[in-house]
Design a protein around this nucleic acid. Sequence first.
DNA 1: CACAAATAGTTGCGCGCGCAACCTTCAGGG
DNA 2: CCCTGAAGGTTGCGCGCGCAACTATTTGTG
Lengths: 154, 154
Amino acid sequence: MNGRPAAEQTLELSAFVPFRLNRLATGVSQYLAAIYQARFGLDIPQWRVMATVGETACTAQHIAASTRMHKTRVSRAIVELEARDLIERASNERDRRERQVRLTKAGQRLYTELVPLALERERALLACLAPEQLHGFLQGLDVLENFLGLDAQP
Amino acid sequence: MNGRPAAEQTLELSAFVPFRLNRLATGVSQYLAAIYQARFGLDIPQWRVMATVGETACTAQHIAASTRMHKTRVSRAIVELEARDLIERASNERDRRERQVRLTKAGQRLYTELVPLALERERALLACLAPEQLHGFLQGLDVLENFLGLDAQP
DNA sequence: CACAAATAGTTGCGCGCGCAACCTTCAGGG
DNA sequence: CCCTGAAGGTTGCGCGCGCAACTATTTGTG
């Protein structure tokens, strides 16, 4: 356990918050991977595209902006998902540069099967926190995201 | 801001804690990169090796275990740092498989210059949290790490 | 209306990563 | 003692990522 005094002068990596956040994010990703990877054959970019498009169809650029992934990463994930017939793209007549990305029937089936499992996995993870701990942690998350401008939609 | 009710049924990525943690970790890494990257020409693996070896000399395996990096990643970072004369390796007579990794004089100079900057940067980041918020957030971090077994030293 | 600048998206390329295989050295049992 | 298995590190290889450059289309401006 790593409760650390604020005014430390010597650097211990396992007490250094940026490192701890990286390590935690990696750990949580692995904790989730069992769902979308082993069971549905999706990698992280593909999973994020599915999750974004699942609620409402949108453009590749919108996916990139809201997931904060590089547009090439999004582009490649879309190509792969399209090859698996999980998503499809419809040309927009008003602006023929962009294309509307949406789930196919098969994509919707996968989506409605996947989402509850992912949410349950999140719930199981957060269940290790007492209610007030959870609240405090999420509040800290909010403030840090806001400080770094991560939730802004440019 | 993303305070989210616990029992959601629809998945919105920007409210999904695993995604938020990944995004936050990436954001914090970039926030720190200005220090060790632009200013000292270190990438993340190199920086982690320096930080680990800085306090006390140790083996590559120990670095891998305490940073949770793959041993090949550690190995390559060590080779690069050695080429820059920031670290050196001493053969262990008792066990000639392993080698003790430690800072050179130049490495120590860089280290003593770098550490206060990194800690200051961490302090600046966490300063966006009110004292109790910080406490709550770190407590949540502790519990999650413990739940995922991230602080264990196998 | 023409031309410059911006936007949506794709692709070539180099690099860093992890896996698996490998080399060397050590420990331990038959 | 040998010989098998394990441990510390290194290296070959394939893959995914981001950067930069590109195409195609749209918008803005004189």
